[in-house]
Design a protein around this nucleic acid. Structure first.
Length: 589
RNA sequence: GUCCCCGUAGCUCAGUGGAUAGAGCACCGGUUUCCUAAACCGGGGGUCGCAGGUUCGAGUCCUGCCGGGGAUACCA
């Protein structure tokens, strides 16, 4: 069948009685650091003890016993490794067939599909949506796509923070300053500034004029009560401004091509949470402590989990309990994932432990996908200090940079483009840059947001990835004569006019494409989109090298067909990766 | 105090216990009568924070320390 299978069979045969001592052969196989060394390598260290021989001697012995068969073109000992060289044409043919008949995708799927809920984004209404929030959306969406590609039944869920004291602060500011005009554009940013100014005012008053501070806070609480109890005037303002935000968020999700299957709202689960607290209090799972209600998690080493404040008010934790119950009971999810910043680690450890105490067995299948903040080169982003970059500002900046770049080039491809085509292409490059910029860094690492770097579309960026796809489309467009489709495979792997398929850039690219199923599996188990992002960058890099080194359309047959098939296969695999990260595609740029 | 995350090239980052630790940016030099030069090739640049330990083998695993960030019940 495939090269890897052939290698495993050959090794088993050559090892004979030593197979058991060698351990898991499939797991042992590695990729040599350089393509000239071969495509797969078997390290002989584990055998050294049993055979009481030096690894290089064992490698030489094994290499001598294995004859090239099937897709194995050459076997060679190199130091302590047995290196296997694949027959590149057979390998390419195999990849084409598997892409066509679905085996390639089947291999990428899990054998334990589950119903998974992935909660992400969780934007607060009445607050600025800034670059930091973008990381969450893009990360969560990538996970949704990856879990789907793996064959899971995924429910993408959003959870809007549309209630509480912060919303009241914003509304209070608006009500006490009727002279302020509401802008037509970027209303979320304006509402956010109302919230910030109210917060700052209270903080200042607490310093300078404690008495006024107290009355101000009291009137903010009045607004909150009005929201809760349905004061017509306050309620109307609340509903209107809330809707501005929901519309604004939807516009952002549309631009990013992010979709949710279900929306939760804080305003919905607030009361339910309190009911759960009463319930669990009656059962003795929750207890009173210092006037408040807690779930005592000292046994788990997590301290006290506060579920109701001393004044009877609910908190995040209270609502999360109700939310979790809905997820388990109404949606029947087997696994539940929460994409939330890493500063909430303790919160989620407590939440999951509390759910376990409440009797939810599936609490063990809850997972907090933590990620670090987005930082500016100058430090932490703070919406209160006004140092946060609103998403639309970033978007405009990147768009300007990319459009300027494109307009200065004057490419033939773009000669007949109308305004729509221009706008659409620019927008796709922008989205690719934004998403890739957020995803190519490991979750646990801070993303440093440097506008200079983000507006330079060269090197390790989304634009670089799209560029490869545009070149691929260009080749396919310009090919004259017979153009193979993947289903045709590679009929003849032989040499022609002294040139055969198997240039080192071809073999390196091909070998890399073959690892996709494994890469997707790793993204699922680690919840790290960076795994796929790195794969795509490497694939693109390898394609660019191949492209620069090997003429495709002008190559003699059958080399031309083989190269075109490599181009087709590269496109097919790249598209799978783009889909998983939610990156847009282009066929010209 | 305790717990968690990060520390790899000037900067930003990859690196699934295996071979000479790799990219991108920046800097220097080269490549276009040829499929898109947003590309490709070459060059300089490293005590993988420090010290021990486990292992045939450690950037990777364990312990301790140093530096940065975060969490640590009545904020959200």
């Amino acid at each position: 069948m495939g090269f890897r299978a052939d290698v495993l069979r050959a090794l088993e045969g050559a090892l004979g009685a030593d197979v058991a001592a060698a351990g898991d052969l499939d797991a042992a196989l590695t990729t040599p650091p350089k393509i000239e060394m071969g495509d797969l390598a078997f390290p002989c260290f584990a055998l050294a003890k049993v055979k009481k021989k030096a690894p290089p001697a064992i490698a030489a012995e094994l290499a001598a016993t294995i004859a090239p068969t099937g897709a194995i073109a050459k076997v060679q000992a190199l130091g302590p490794f047995v290196n296997f060289h694949a027959d590149p044409a057979k390998q390419l043919d195999d990849l084409c067939q598997r892409l066509v008949d679905g085996r390639f995708d089947a291999e990428a799927r899990t054998d334990a599909p589950a119903r998974v809920m992935i909660e992400f984004s969780q934007p607060n209404t009445h607050k600025l949506f800034h670059v930091g929030h973008l990381r969450n959306v893009v990360l969560g969406d990538a996970l949704v796509r990856a879990f789907r590609a793996r064959g899971h039944d995924v429910v993408a869920a959003n959870y809007y923070g549309d209630f509480g004291i912060d919303v009241a602060k914003c509304l209070w500011w608006i009500r006490t300053r009727p002279e302020e005009t509401v802008p037509v554009e970027h209303r979320i940013a304006w509402l956010g500034s109302c919230y910030v100014r109210a917060t700052q005012l209270v903080a200042e008053l607490e310093e300078s004029d404690p008495e006024t501070a107290t009355t101000t806070k009291a009137s903010i609480r009045e607004v909150l009560r009005g929201m809760e109890e349905g004061d017509p005037e306050i309620r109307a303002l609340y509903e209107e401004t809330r809707q501005w935000c929901l519309d604004g968020f939807q516009a952002i999700y549309d631009q990013l091509d992010v979709r949710f299957d279900h929306d939760f709202f804080e305003s919905q689960v607030e009361h339910e949470g309190q009911a759960i607290v009463d319930e669990q209090l009656a059962k003795g799972v929750f207890v009173e402590s210092q006037g408040a209600i807690i779930c005592d998690l000292t046994e788990e080493g997590l301290g006290a989990c506060l579920v109701r404040k001393g004044d009877g008010a609910s908190l995040y934790m209270t609502w999360d309990l109700a939310l979790a119950r809905r997820k388990f009971d109404d949606f029947d999810v087997e696994r539940s994932m929460y994409v939330v910043g890493s500063e909430q680690r303790h919160h989620f450890q407590q939440l999951f432990a509390t759910l376990a105490r409440m009797g939810y067995e599936r609490a063990k299948d809850c997972r907090h996908v933590a990620y670090e903040l987005v930082m500016l080169p100058s430090g932490k982003m703070s919406s209160r200090k006004g140092t946060a970059i609103p998403l639309h500002v970033l978007w405009d900046t990147v768009r300007d940079a990319i459009r300027t770049r494109m307009e200065s080039e004057g490419r033939d491809e773009r000669a007949g483009w109308d305004a729509t085509r221009w706008n659409e292409t620019v927008e796709r490059v922008v989205v690719a840059c934004l998403k890739y910029g957020m995803l190519h860094v490991t979750n646990n690492r801070r993303v440093v947001f440097d506008v200079e770097a983000w507006t330079n579309p060269e090197g390790d960026t989304g634009a670089y990835l799209l560029y490869a796809l545009a070149r691929i489309a260009g080749i396919q467009r310009k090919a004259e004569g017979p153009v193979p489709t993947l289903a045709d495979g590679v009929q003849d792997g032989g040499a022609s006019e002294g040139e055969a398929f198997g240039h080192e850039t071809e073999r390196a690219l091909l070998g890399h494409l073959l690892t996709w199923p494994d890469v997707l599996a790793r993204m699922e188990s680690t919840c790290e989109p960076a795994v796929v992002a790195t794969f795509l960058f490497d694939a693109t890099k390898l394609f660019s090298r191949f492209y620069a080194a090997c003429p495709i359309l002008k190559a003699p047959e059958p080399l031309r067909t083989a190269r075109l098939q490599l181009v087709n296969a590269t496109e097919a695999v790249l598209r799978r990766g783009f889909e998983v990260l939610g990156l847009p595609v282009v066929d010209a740029m």
